[in-house]
Design a binder for these strands. Structure first.
Lengths: 342, 342
DNA sequence: GCCCGCTGCGATAACGTTCTCAGCGTGACC
DNA sequence: GGTCACGCTGAGAACGTTATCGCAGCGGGC
């Protein structure tokens, strides 16, 4: 038994002859080791847990694909859980995955402030890599896109085209109402670790304005009531039907893009004549509408790959300082933005 | 130890008092049972394996969401693997999942003819539920959409509008070239168990023609070279630029829809004036283009739910005859189809 | 010729549960 | 008062691996 184990695991000392015999035998009876038993003793399961908001969202679907690709390459498989951005669900999911003894966790934290359960996982020796959001309350690797720069570039582009009234449709789940006032406040240079992705992207919007010396009209930044297409449509509709409506509209993720674009269609606005429009995430359909959408592209697959790679390194014993990997976005200028009519 | 186990698992006989003591103790030290050890003895892992072509595809993303929702409800979690429609990868994946001792498997078989590894899993006691495709070579439950009826309805609609030359863009990976001739042959009523989804959908196209007494021009059914957007674009471009081009175009899944629609855009065809267009899968963007796309809608989430439910029943010991669950599609008539100009 | 070291292998503990079984105490019935 | 039944508990096996350890055998050096 022990010898067989050594032969298969080839560690320790086994003569070439016996090894061959063992291999032949296992081959013949179709022996497959029981990975549960193995995991018990090695304390490694070779699987990682992925907890994301919603796999049906194209963004997470792309990221998860990247994760699974890289994980498989490294010999890990992937347990998938959806949270719908609910912290309680996330907590349960993490507990469950820990019970299943995953070797590591990749998570898009529902609330970047409520991360004790993630800290708990780390303490128990399970490395955690954050995706899509950074949390300053957690000392963990994080792979995100440079959210601030992304929208900053988009808004700079619009400002350069002469736009002065630029609307933004953002889902901003406000943990504390005070933060909201704070966000629009003067401190635009603070660390973004306490910001979720949408807040960080809004920050880019604000910074671009400041850099250009253009004042921000707070009534142009729209918080959607709920994080879904319908909420975004409503918010955009309200914004686009008011007197003195913006000449340009920026969305901050693909759900907001669909929602806002729906409002544009309903109101039968002409792009880019009536309105310049900037989308988020380079999905297939954005080149299929007329005009094609100018947008911010995130390297979804790469986000996943990098996160998985980082996690595998951690699992393999890397204990350097946690890193924040900021991947660059691409700003793709297509037909939906143009110089403001004067 | 044994008593504690009984108290927690509440089976066997334990006095109320001891149970309370045990519960208190576990509470205090934050005891969490090791599910590996438990699984070893119970031979149940409470996890299921999902092997699909590509989680980044909106169809599978939606289905997998349905699976995870239902699985979680039943206390299972989900191991996810992508195959990219490659049988060898699928075989490996199944072997891996079996090693991990999943309680059941949900798989969209890459090749409905090569399913011995799935039969093997069944033999070893791991139930298998197929999704999106049926295999007559495997005695397993399957949850699909009524593929034949879906395209049959779509084509009937077009025929009713007076179209006589209806193109179809289908990815038809042909396992044996003979089958291709066979598919267009006279035997339209055979069991669809040996057909993958795209072949079954093509069958609906053929049947609708036969029912209407309209002959099929084989040159209008296009096999894409590869299963991707680019392949579909090329095929559609070729079809739409030939002399005597079709007056209507039917696509057979969401990838083909994007690809074909891209060709329509390139060629700057007017919908539905120059061409009537039928898409597949009711994705958000299909209402965002002008005109909105007439299409076949699949209940993606429900496919996943039903598959998971069926699998859980099997795991719980149900051993009735395998069932083929055919979910109905919805045909949504929107703006991209119209009566043929006469 | 003896001893030492090295090689190969089997016995055995360990991982953390569940489950079976036997034993023990107590109460009731004969 | 004895016996039987029953409720509860703890000891121990089992699940299938890996890891440690000691032992046997053998060759070489002194």
């Amino acid at each position: 038994m022990a010898t067989a184990s050594r032969a298969l695991g080839n560690y320790g000392r086994v003569s070439a002859e016996t090894r061959a015999r063992v291999l032949a035998a296992t081959e013949q009876i179709g022996y497959r080791p029981n990975s549960l038993a193995r995991s018990m003793i090695t304390r490694r399961t070779n699987s990682i847990g992925v907890v994301c908001a919603d796999i049906a969202s194209p963004f997470f679907a792309g990221v998860v694909r990247g994760i699974t690709d890289e994980a498989k390459r490294a010999g890990f498989d992937t347990l998938l859980v959806n949270t719908d951005e609910d912290v309680a669900t996330e907590r349960e999911a993490v507990a469950l995955l820990m019970d299943k003894r995953v070797d590591g966790l990749i998570v898009s934290a529902a609330d970047v402030r409520e991360v004790e359960h993630l800290a708990g996982a780390q303490e128990r020796g399970t490395p955690v890599v954050l995706i899509d959001r950074i949390s300053s309350m957690l000392d963990a690797d994080a792979v995100t896109v440079d959210d601030v720069a992304a929208t900053e570039e988009a808004v700079r582009h619009l400002l350069g085209l002469g736009h002065r009234r630029i609307g933004v449709i953002a889902e901003l789940r406000i943990e504390r109402e005070a933060d909201w006032a704070n966000l629009l406040g003067p401190d635009l240079d603070r660390d973004r670790g306490e910001l979720n992705a949408s807040a960080a992207r809004l920050l880019g919007y604000l910074r671009a304005h400041r850099a250009a010396g253009v004042p921000v009209d707070p009534s142009l930044v729209c918080r959607t009531g709920s994080y879904d297409v319908g909420g975004a449509t409503e918010a955009a509709r309200a914004l686009l039907t008011r007197t003195n409506r913006p000449t340009a509209l920026v969305t901050i993720d693909n759900v907001m893009t669909v929602g806002a674009f729906r409002a544009v269609r309903e109101l039968d606005l002409d792009l880019p004549g009536d309105l310049s429009f900037v989308g988020f995430d380079n999905l297939d359909w954005t080149t299929l509408v007329r005009p094609a959408l100018t947008l911010v592209e995130q390297p979804m697959h790469e986000i996943g790959e990098q996160a998985a790679r980082r996690l595998v390194e951690r699992i393999s014993g890397d204990d350097q300082e946690p890193r924040r990997i900021l991947l660059p976005t691409s700003f793709l200028v297509r037909g939906s933005t143009a110089a403001v009519e004067s």
